[in-house]
Amino acid sequence: MLKNDLVDTIREKALWMRRRAFTMVYDAQLGHPGGDFSAIDIIATLYFGVMRYDPKKPDMPERDRFIMSKGHATGALYTALCAAGYYPEDWLKTYMQPQSKLNGHPNRNYLPGVETNTGPLGHGLPVALGIAIAGQMTNSDYRTFVLTGDGELQEGSNWEAAMSAGNRKLGKFTLIVDRNRLQQGMGTEETNGLDPLDDKFRAFGWDVEVVDGHDVGALVNALSEPPGGRSKPLCIIANTIKGKGVSFMENKASWHHGVPNAEQYDIAMEELV
């Protein structure tokens, strides 16, 4: 696929994911739409422009892995897996309903394509690290991607894993930080500041790239493996906007787990085109 076509395809998928995720949240009157929307372009780029997988063989050993450490942003993850062909769209209608496979946080035993159960923050990076180590030990070709929130990096377990990954020179390991600068209550920097985040990861032995997390072309470039591969793990700091795509949601911490009323839903649907 030509680069421009690829970018268009990813954008189309991302638009569908935003509309579908927001509808899920509206129907359930539950969810985390702000964080869904900051992450969707990243996840769409991974599933529709970068990763190798076969939805018919979700356990294929050589698949690339994506670990959604910010497990609360299920609107983004579930729509991506659905669009990727892991399950039919009907399943999305059950979001957070009793006995649904689409729990408020993902469960690998409920849904194909979910690599591990997340929800409590600071869990995805260590698990992803283990997957990457397994790949390194067995000389496998698969890549391991993990998406964390930025506020989530206040959890110490991430830094245990970051240190270990840097020391192990895991060239097929990529962390993407959804750097929307807002956690559930207020800004990350006014809560427990993370900057300079790039320097932190470099000091831990990682390559670091800073990109616009809504620029799909830039994301494709950053996420693609360079010729000859890498000799260090890669941290992509994706600068994003919480609530991206809907005017009244953008950069508002209250949309971390805010849910729309009917009027807000209609406005959002008009804007998401």
Binding site: P126, L129, I131
Partner: peptide, 16 residues
């Protein structure tokens, strides 16, 4: 680093 240790265990199982 026990938290990482147990998480890595889960990931290794994911990797077969």
């Amino acid at each position: 680093a026990e938290q990482n240790m147990v998480g890595v265990g889960a990931g290794l199982a994911n990797g077969g």
